[in-house]
Structures are given as C-alpha cells and as structure tokens.
Design a protein around this nucleic acid. Sequence first.
RNA 1: GCGGGCGUAGCUCAGUUGGUUAGAGCGCCAGAUUGUGGAUCUGGAUGUCGUGGGUUCGAUUCCCAUCGCUCGCCCCA
Length: 414
Amino acid sequence: MASLQPVRGTHDLLPDEGRKHRHIADTARGLAARYGYEEVATPIFEFTEVFKRTLGDTSDVVTKEMYTFEDRSGDLITLRPEGTAGIARAVISGGLGQNLPLKFFYYGPMFRHERPQKGRLRQFHQIGVELLGVAAPLGDIEVIALGAHILDSLGILGRCKLELNTLGDVESRVAYRDVLVKYLSGHVDSLSEDSRERLNRNPLRVLDSKDEGDKRIVADAPAFGDYLTEAARDFFARVTDGLDALGIRYELNPRLVRGLDYYCHTAFEFTTDALGAQGTVLAGGRYDGLIETMGGPATAGVGWAAGVERLAMLAEGTQAPVRPIAVIPIGGAAEAAALKLTFDLRQAGFSIDLGFSGNLSRRMKRANKLDAVCAIILGEDEIAKGVATIRDMASGEQTTVPLGEIAAHLARHR
RNA sequence: GCGGGCGUAGCUCAGUUGGUUAGAGCGCCAGAUUGUGGAUCUGGAUGUCGUGGGUUCGAUUCCCAUCGCUCGCCCCA
C-alpha cells in the first residue's frame, strides 16, 4: 500500500472514456425506453444471501468471486456481482408483482474478484434489461431483439454473432441430467479434473468444457434436444420462429450453457472474436424460477446483461464533448463584467468557459483547445462602449455586439 | 486460482554486452506576438528506469521477491 495505485482490477473513468460509456449507456437507455423498458437502480450491495440463493451455490461467481464483508452491524453484505438478483429482490420487497409485466433497464457497476484481463475488470459496468411476468416466447423474442437493436445502433452487431440454445423446462432438465450423468460417469476416467468436479455439482456445465479430451467425450453424449418435453420444444420453436420473422440471425449452439443457475428455456449470447479471450458481449436468458427461489410468487422472467467496457472497446462512436463559448476578459477591470456576463449566459442556457487566468493569447489558446464555438472578448475598449467583441472561432470573423444583445446574438449556440 | 510476456518522462517508445551528466517523438510550459487561438520557428522542464531486497568497487542493466499491466487457461459481461 506504499504507492498510490488504484485497487487491482479497478480504474478511473476519465472524461474521454466516460463520454464513451455515456454514449453506450445513453444509446441503450434510449432504445430500451422505445421498447418500454424504464431505468431502475438497485443498491450496489445486498445481503449476501440474495446472491447466494439466486446464483446457485455451484457457480464460480458465488463460490470464489464475490466481494463479501461483514458491516458494522454484523450483517453479511456483498457487492453485487450482477444485476438480476437485486432487481428480483426489489420486485419481491416492493410488492411489484402486483403490476406485471415489469420492464426494467439498468446501468451500473458490478464487482467480481477475478483475475483482471483485457475486457475483464474487478469493478466493471453492465447495462441490462429484465422483463418480468411474461411467460410467453414473445418475451424472449422482444428482449433479444432489443439487445440486437442496441448492438446495431452501436455499430457492433456486424462483428457479433448470436448463439442460441434452450435449457428446456425443469422436467426436460431433470430427465436429461440423469442420462447425461449416466453417460459421463461411464467416461469419468477420461474427463478433465474440472469436469469431474462439474459432474457432481453441475453436470450440464461439462457440455461447455474447452478441454479437448472433454470435447471428444461430449461430442458423443446424448443430445439435450432428444430429451426436451414437447412443451419445451414448442417454446423454443416459437422463439426461433419469432427471430426468423424479425430477420435476426442466430446459430444454434447446443453447448451453450449459462454459468448462473437460475436460467431455463432460452439461453443466448452475442459473441465476438474481436476481444481476445473475452468473447461474450451481451448474454442472458430466461429465468422463470428465480423469484420463487427467493421466496416470492412464481414469476416468469427473461433478461440479459452486457459489459459496458467490452462494448466500449468495440463501438466506434462516442459522445461529443460540449462545445463551450469562451468568455475572455482583458485586464482586471473587465473581470468583474466577464464574471457577471458568464453567469448570466449560463442562466440563459449557454455553456460557457471562463478561463481562470492568463492574458488574451493564453485564453484564446484555451478556447481553441476546448473547441469553443466562439469567444466573447471583453476589454477596456468594449466596456467603455457597453459592447463585447464576439469572435467566431472557425472563421475568425469578429463582430461588435451590445452587451444586452449577446444572448440573442448567440441564440443558435444554445 | 494456474502458466507465459512486459514494466524507462503525462503518452508512445529507444537505450544501457553492469561504469561518470538516461534519450527521441508527441504533449506540456515560455518566447517570437504586453488586445487575438489553430500553422511555423526558438528555448525550457520533466524521470525515485514499477517497488523492496540481494550480488557487486559500482545496478536502470544481473538475481530474488513483490505490485501492476498483458496474453492464454479458468470464468464470464
């Protein structure tokens, strides 16, 4: 702790990158609103139990990545590693289930104690949406369409592909889990150590293993598709039909398994190969059992989350900084007048930069660096005549304007 | 959590086969221009050579540890 370094895996969002984040958040928020999803913000910490219960005791996120601490009242608190659990909790504690369906958008920091890498931080930001109370495939379709729409608006849909799978309903999963465990148990000696562990805790995850040996075994495993109930199969077919109808392209990936335990039916993931090892850009799925698991009424849910830092690395656009008008006093006598003019113009809705010090040349340089649209120059000559000189920074053209008419003269820059 | 690479000015990087004053470009500051920015020219300031320890007459250079970044594994957004 000798040197002043930021905590590992955290970093400062300075103006340049901050504007990029805002561009992404604003784009997403705007489109979400167009689909009827309103922004909500839940606390960034919750009782640890909220995440333990919802994410599942077997997930890595819960077992080794949470920032958990005891607060001064002895409560066990966790910094949220993702957004869905907090929203589900809010739905229950606020009795929001009375007003289904609920359509929420969120944006904020998340915390996971992972090894930092490109596109993987310990404090990172996610945008996400949750649709609660819609059990029909139309919900899955809408949520995926919104995700695709946002990626498209950010100009990165073309570099992503949508992978899609179904995890079926509980009945399907129980049936499949049995045959899968039976099959894998027959090959237990050839499985990787990780997968042997998964076999006990969460066998579906073995399907997702990157180990070459595991892949060979998995290749001959019974297919989940054969064990789907008719209802689950039909549900998934209606989702894919809907995507087809909207012209949203996808690839079926039977190996796509979600890391968090609360998912069922549709699982999807927009991935890219432009980000190295961190290929997932926007991912989510259906989680019908979640709210009930937490002690609320049975409530259907679908949603997704996307990493803002990852989106920022892919997206080209950014929010342009505000171009100010520079007010430039020359000499001590003009400063009082400049101060007053500055604050009056700000009240009138203009974005004004009043350099804090320096002579005319220095202040002009500052105006130029800030990309000011124009400079209002106030010197002794001007003050004596009750006017100001307004210089258009692009053309260099200067006009003399009476002090009382400045606001009107600048109206187009408001 | 495991393995590989890297760490020199605000930024991008050169360099030192261990030896006195560590460099460039960009940026920054000042001047040419005490009432005019962007271009140009001139000058200037920068650094505990990531940190701590060891070897050595001497370490930015070699060794160890540590922190950070990075790539892969893992996990995921």
